[in-house]
């Protein structure tokens, strides 16, 4: 399908493309994301958050790494400022993702402000699927498709968070541990498969090593140090290797 077909027909089809987006919930990426949110419900419960608070976190933060960092920082007794900095650093990858998605999503016929509230639904899974599928959607239907997919993902994962929070209190300790283990395991393989450049792979390795090191040096700011120093080290190595190759 051509990507910039005449949009007179598309304008009536917002409902159609919204429903097509909703249907995207039945897909492998959506299934994997829901499995990883099963782990989040257990993690939030272990840290002492109620089911309603955990569901609020999923619905309004809507970025699993930020959610886990937020819960972990509060549990570690970090100060208000340290929590904000840690969450902000864990979410900074949303900036380049949004910059890359906007030229595909933007429709010159719509007012520019609509993309600010719509951007709430940008997170790894919605981004990957949108980057793959939006070029085949007529430009007039892209925002509707994106909102349909983003809203169905968010609503389903709020429900998964509520259910798994309840479930975590009733299952055996082995299963409860397995639920919590879902989160780091999913992050590990998802980050590795989302990596595009050598700098991304190097950053994953430096972070894995420096996280435990700084845990012993400075437990309050450990992930901040590991992120800033590990990421800068990975970027520096990437530049050096680029020059030599």
């Amino acid at each position: 399908m051509p990507s910039d077909v005449d949009s007179t027909a598309d304008e009536q089809s917002n409902g159609y493309w919204f429903r097509r987006g909703l249907a995207g919930i039945i897909s492998a990426p959506a299934f994997i994301l829901m499995a990883s949110f099963v782990g989040f419900g257990g993690l939030a419960r272990e840290a002492g958050w109620s089911a309603g608070e955990a569901a609020f976190i999923t619905g309004f933060i809507w970025a699993l790494p930020s959610q886990v960092v937020f819960i972990g920082s509060v549990a570690a007794g970090a100060s208000f400022g340290a929590i904000i900095i840690a969450v902000a650093l864990s979410a900074v990858r949303l900036l380049p993702m949004t910059v890359a998605l906007m030229p595909i999503l933007r429709d010159p016929k719509r007012p520019g402000w609509v993309y600010y509230p719509a951007s709430h639904f940008i997170a790894i899974t919605a981004w990957v699927v949108s980057m793959m599928r939006l070029p085949d959607v007529p430009r007039g239907g892209r925002l509707a498709f994106f909102l349909g997919f983003g809203m169905s993902l968010t609503v389903c994962n709020v429900a998964v968070t509520l259910l798994s929070h309840q479930l975590a209190g009733t299952v055996s300790p082995v299963i409860a541990a397995a639920l919590v283990f879902l989160t780091p395991m999913y992050f590990l393989v998802a980050l590795w498969s989302a990596a595009r450049m050598r700098a991304d792979y190097l950053a994953l390795i430096t972070g894995l090593v420096l996280g435990p090191v700084f845990h012993h040096v400075d437990p309050e700011f450990d992930i901040l140090w590991a992120g800033i120093l590990g990421g800068t080290l990975a970027f520096g190595l990437h530049k050096i290797m680029e020059r030599w190759s």
């Binding site: 272990e46 840290a47 790494p65 886990v68 960092v69 972990g72 549990a75 840690a86 650093l89 864990s90 979410a91 900074v92 990858r93 900036l95 380049p96 910059v99 300790p173 082995v174 409860a176 541990a177 919590v180 283990f181 989160t183 780091p184 992050f187 590990l188 980050l191 990596a195 450049m197 700098a199 991304d200 190097l202 950053a203 994953l204 390795i205 430096t206 972070g207 894995l208 090593v209 420096l210 996280g211 435990p212 700084f214 845990h215 450990d222 992930i223 901040l224 590991a226 992120g227 800033i228 120093l229 590990g230 990421g231 800068t232 080290l233 990975a234 970027f235 990437h238």
Partner: peptide, 29 residues
């Protein structure tokens, strides 16, 4: 933005290592 992405990736990798090495609750057992 490459640097920004590296910092975010390293920070989340540090979280992964901490969740596996120093968990709380049932996983810690």
């Amino acid at each position: 933005l490459t640097w920004v992405r590296a910092v975010a990736t390293a920070l989340i990798a540090a979280v992964i290592a901490k969740l596996v090495l120093y968990p709380s609750g049932a996983l810690a057992d």
